[in-house]
Every structure is written in structure tokens, then in C-alpha cells.
Amino acid sequence: MKRVLIVDDAIFMRMKLKDILEKNGYDVVGEAQNGVEAIEKYKTEKPDLVTMDITMPEMDGVAALKGIKEINSAAKVIMCSAMGQQSMVMEAIQAGAVDFIVKPFDSDRVVESLNKASK
């Protein structure tokens, strides 16, 4: 079972995502509400996949992605973005994000992304 770390500042979003993932056979091993926490949790949990929100307080998702990539350059991070954040998404892809999903989350789409990323 693939182990996933969910990063989002809104509890609501984390719950929603967790629900989708757990229904589809992923093991959510941790949640973080900002980039700083995300990096900490990445170190301790060493998840197979990370879903990373872009707009967050403390440290945003793109910076956290870079931090995680420094720890493990093969880390698989999927960005969670909203419409209108195209440039941030591109920056994230540039920094090595494996994929991105767009809010509002469509469960099929989320699962597709994680399945493909975890290949």
C-alpha cells in the first residue's frame, strides 16, 4: 500500500483528500498544514507520495517542494492547485513536481494522478 502525506492548510481540504485516497487504497500516513510541517513530516514519515497545496501560510507549497527535493531528489510530489495558479504550477513542475491536480477535486482525477505518479 502506497504511503501518502497530505499537505494543505485547510482541514476541510485535507479531510476531503484523505477520504478520497483511503477509499482508493492509499495509506495516509500524515497531514501537514504548511510547508515547514510538510518538510518535517517528510523526514519522519518518508512517504511514497506527497500531495502539496500551493497557497499555504509559513511556507508555500512550491518552497516546500524544493525543500523536499533537497532531502530526496526522487521524491514524488503532486501539487494541488486552483484555477489561476498556472505560473505557480509551472514553477513547481520546473522544480520537479511529478504532477498536479486542480481544485475542486474530482476523485477520479485525483486517483488517476496518484496511480500514475506511484508507478
Partner: peptide, 12 residues
């Protein structure tokens, strides 16, 4: 950020 998160939540 707050407006953005609200949008995402409302859309969901």
C-alpha cells in the same frame, strides 16, 4: 490566500 482557500472550499 484566505479568498483563495474559500474559493476552493466552496467549489468542492
Amino acid at each position: 490566500r484566505a479568498a483563495h482557500t474559500l474559493k476552493g472550499m466552496a467549489a468542492t
